[in-house]
Amino acid sequence: MSTATIYLDGLSVLGPGMADWNAAAACLRGEQPFAVAEVSLPPVTALPATERRRVGAAVKLAMATGFAAVDAAGADAALLANVFCSTGGDCDNCHNLLDVLASDQRLVSPTRFHNSVHNAPAGYWGIATGCTAASTSLCAYDATFAAGLLETVTQVQASGDRGLLVAFDTAYPQPLYAQRPIPYPMGVGMVFSARRSERSLAALQLSLCNEAASTMADAALEQLRQTIPAARSLPLLQLLAQRSAGRVVLDYLDDCRLAVTVQA
């Protein structure tokens, strides 16, 4: 059983050696060699100054990823139902809270605390865009990207409207880094629509399957795919970069994978 056909209207990538979708697409098509470079995160100018001061790398990454996808789709962010998916949310913030709670004083910062909710980036997104539509924040460890994609596509199918997916992952600092070593921050944004339009880049259908996940031929890209949950999207991004029809299997849960059929 597949989902209905859903249309991709715009996408964005922000990750190591992938400053934007065009740079990522050139790598994924093999036109440019993939070379890891630091990820530069722009300040969130869309937020009021008081809020801007309060946000760390995870929120900056999520916001930059979201805005780039919305721009690419020519959409109005204020009108898009949205899904934010991330394995750990704001990991720096979480580490800081754990550190403070293990200290003698336990002087927890109220801002740190309200930023610790997994939906903090989605909350800031709402404040920045004025969007009052439905917003879901979720996680599924390494399966987080596919879980977010499923949530967004089923949401768009149910509403008959457009929707935004923002997948973003950052790493914890040590000592938790040792247990969850995510080597680089990475964000992937997608705007989907239930209707075909002049904006449509591709038509997608999702179905659950049992097959092995598609892998990347390039060893460095495959390394990314295996170590960053948001990079589990790379086989799909490659197919989209090639602007060709095809089918990829995205890593999801141990015994449940997500097949994506793309019609150009």
């Binding site: 997994h118 499923l150 949530e151 149910a158 999801y252």
Partner: peptide, 22 residues
């Protein structure tokens, strides 16, 4: 089958009804 945790603070376990319904 499919699975996830929805974590939207104090609305989390209401929103999963929507996820399941869709």
């Amino acid at each position: 089958g499919p699975a996830c945790v929805v974590s939207t603070a104090c609305s989390s376990s209401a929103k999963v009804f929507g996820t399941a319904q869709r």
